[in-house]
Design a protein around this nucleic acid. Sequence first.
DNA 1: CAGAAAAATGTAAGCGATTTCAAAATAAAA
DNA 2: TTTTATTTTGAAATCGCTTACATTTTTCTG
Lengths: 335, 335
Amino acid sequence: MKRITIYDVAKEADVSLATVSRVINDSSVVREDTRIRVQQAIEKLGYKPNAIAQGLALSKTTTISIVMSEKLFGYNGKILNGLMDVAKIYNYNIMFHTTSRGITRMQDVIESIIKTRTDGVILFNDNFSEDELEVLQEYQIPMVVVGSKIGDTKLENVGNTYVDFEKMAYDLVNSYFEKGVEDITLLEDRLNASMLAELKKGVDKAFAERGKVFTQYVPYDESFKSSYVFLTEHFKKHAPSKLVIASRDSQAYAVLNACQEAGYKIPEDIELVCVNNNKYLTMTKPHISAYNIPEYDIGAVSMRLLTKMLVHDPSIKDNISIEMGYSFIPRGTTK
Amino acid sequence: MKRITIYDVAKEADVSLATVSRVINDSSVVREDTRIRVQQAIEKLGYKPNAIAQGLALSKTTTISIVMSEKLFGYNGKILNGLMDVAKIYNYNIMFHTTSRGITRMQDVIESIIKTRTDGVILFNDNFSEDELEVLQEYQIPMVVVGSKIGDTKLENVGNTYVDFEKMAYDLVNSYFEKGVEDITLLEDRLNASMLAELKKGVDKAFAERGKVFTQYVPYDESFKSSYVFLTEHFKKHAPSKLVIASRDSQAYAVLNACQEAGYKIPEDIELVCVNNNKYLTMTKPHISAYNIPEYDIGAVSMRLLTKMLVHDPSIKDNISIEMGYSFIPRGTTK
DNA sequence: CAGAAAAATGTAAGCGATTTCAAAATAAAA
DNA sequence: TTTTATTTTGAAATCGCTTACATTTTTCTG
């Protein structure tokens, strides 16, 4: 089965390939009647331009790579939706890469990004190291890092969309200080280390400003099947504090269930806030208070930013960072 | 910044491009000392073969497209993990496509699959129509459909991995018949229509064999924010039956919560089984009994099958279907 | 209606690899 | 040491498209 090429179309329409190419890319120079003739030939033969050949000719693949850690997979659905929708609008194809501890190292991913001559990359911020990314610089592949803030960097051509988790935690803790509550716990989350680091910074800062040291940081051992099991056990032994900050739904569940078993009342004795809103938080009794993060928008904005970088939009100079807002949704676990 | 091409390497190593190409593809013909010389040149220049050019020359992109419905996103994380891991092993790149009601129609996806000359496709079974897929046939792009069973098809070159949901439902219902329970409800799930259709077939069949007609099929209105809210309300009004089969975690939660509010005891008065196991089912009280589906394996097996089809493995003739097992995990919501 | 200007089309050179076939280098045989 | 067989290498065509530049066609002017 011979595949239809631009040459076949040219012959069918009795023009040169150049002309066919022009109508494909709707160049304005071609005359209306020949455009129609070519269009019909394309239709008739069912011709579909070969993006690979185009890519080679143009040194441009209209393809964007998304890189995320395998474990974050189920959690970033909405961000992905935002990314995909905007990519679709601008007609970009998406290459998908995952990193995982054992099988796929970041380096391999970078390697294949380069080999496939991807135009740009969206990278989920998960403790990557700058050194690994340097190769991308050599190839001048623009990148936007999504999730949490990246600090100063020597890298060029990198955008960033983030939620200010540090501020979120800082404000939250302060608001409880003002209510006279100082007994506060933050739960570790291995799934999203960079987010957690920001949260912790915020909490530490708030404590430091009051001349206190924050200590109630509950880590959990990864050998446990899930943080849920671990935390539930933990809180049966150690009474939780007045305010518990969870970073994920399962942690919030754990706190809720452990407290109920231990006979603590929520929110009377203990208040609970989850840093990531999702539907599961409204399936408990009481519903769990949470911060809502505009996930879809994060995806959409990130991709839009990248597309601008790709066409060297004049409004994009230097590395640009976009802060995404968030809102608190009070529910049954806070007073 | 000029990118390094095979030509640069050739000059550096003082050989022709042909030779460089040979060492890249470890052709056995090249002599050891020149191989080393070329290798060094590659190293020195940091040369990375251009996959696009290779793709053009070979009519082969070593790229596989994954197509799934946007809404299924968060639910298929583990399958995706399996797919990605195996793709990595065989060095395939992944193009990712989502379909969604408004923005992205299947046809557009197919169009870009063809344009990008993807070697094969993994399609999540979600009520696609055969007609849409016919174009892929013309281009002889192999495909494996994952999720649920596809019936007879005139399509060629399509593999299938599935869980026999029909049998699952059939056996489940029968086992309750044997215990004397005939009052059974199945909850609709719009998220995974093809799975639900299979389940319903199984239930219907079991009822039909006993000369009964199955009626307790609870649909839900999509205008509701989530099935959870709807079902919770529903069950406050209509008492659930002796056995409720939920197809998703949130549905199971709804049943559990509604029953608790209405004063029914689980599992004494009502038993509850969820068709898809996940971690959330062990965060309730009682834990929810469920069928465990080998999601990771489904992904891995599907991708492996596709890779075999791509190299025309002789063990693959005609369309091949692989049934994946499942197991029941009894927990607190069944007696 | 000739000549100039503008618009439309075609020619041919890339883009960066692979691969066939011929030529050169090396090894084996006489 | 020739001659012949075998390995290695290189030259050049090819994959399917874009585009600068040349050429042809059309439109406009006077």
